[in-house]
Design a protein around this nucleic acid. Sequence first.
DNA 1: TGAAAGCGGACCTAACCAGTCGGATTTTCA
DNA 2: TGAAAATCCGACTGGTTAGGTCCGCTTTCA
Lengths: 147, 147
Amino acid sequence: MLKLTKKADYGLMALKYLAEHPETPAFSAKDLADAYGIPPQLLAKILQRLTKTGLLRSHAGMNGGYALAREARSISAFEVIHAIDGPLFITSCFKGAKSCDLTPNCTIKEPLARVNDTITGVLKSISIQDLAEQEAPGAQKLVTLTV
Amino acid sequence: MLKLTKKADYGLMALKYLAEHPETPAFSAKDLADAYGIPPQLLAKILQRLTKTGLLRSHAGMNGGYALAREARSISAFEVIHAIDGPLFITSCFKGAKSCDLTPNCTIKEPLARVNDTITGVLKSISIQDLAEQEAPGAQKLVTLTV
DNA sequence: TGAAAGCGGACCTAACCAGTCGGATTTTCA
DNA sequence: TGAAAATCCGACTGGTTAGGTCCGCTTTCA
């Protein structure tokens, strides 16, 4: 439970790969899929969605492919996950504005909403560049949680 | 995505309810289910599991029911979620010790494991008592994340 | 002894995830 | 100019899981 989908994983991997090879102008979906053993057609759809949301630039035709639309440092893991999996709600009774009607006294959701905010904050603080620099010790980041 | 299951939600609600009524010796599964409009048989199974993991004490027979096995302050949201939903992995390629064999160069999972640790840390820092005191401003808790 | 409770396995159903297929469009290159 | 390489996009399938139900059993107590 509380899992990212494989699609989100694949998307993060692909963006990380692009961030690691800034000199290459573009990679095709097949290139990226081969690099990690991901089903090419599945990755293709993921990359298309990332293109629609503006995280990637695409170019059809021979020698086409995908490239990062912005700097790797400015793309957060949260953006990628949100683009692929949609909005991120830890509590199952959240569905946009309409909360769980059947259980009006579900006071659980308020504290958990703060947990939700914390998680999104953490994911927003991690950039694709951070993922690409896997060996780096990394900066410590402080997250404040109010319960 | 990244959702808690409804079962975990229900379990948290039930424990919170018990924490709010410390004077009552025990509540039956039906009592708790009625309080929130949860399917009684479903909640019953959840409470049984929480009993097996030692978070609740149960008593069969008339006037039986469930009660907290420990102080509400000492039961964390993480324990409840873990008891109901099992281990908490944000990345889909984690399944105990065996990682994703097909993608050996999946370097994504290392940074995400740290995110995972952060989330579990947050959930461990929240007690059932915290949930019961929904009106209280609550203490700020600092979480450190190393990327 | 019977009603009220917990216990627990089997089962069902709908939703969803992962992945595939087929075809259309765009671009490049020989 | 036509074939190849690539993105694009909707439909479909198959398997897993979450949510929920059913039924029979055991324990307890009035």
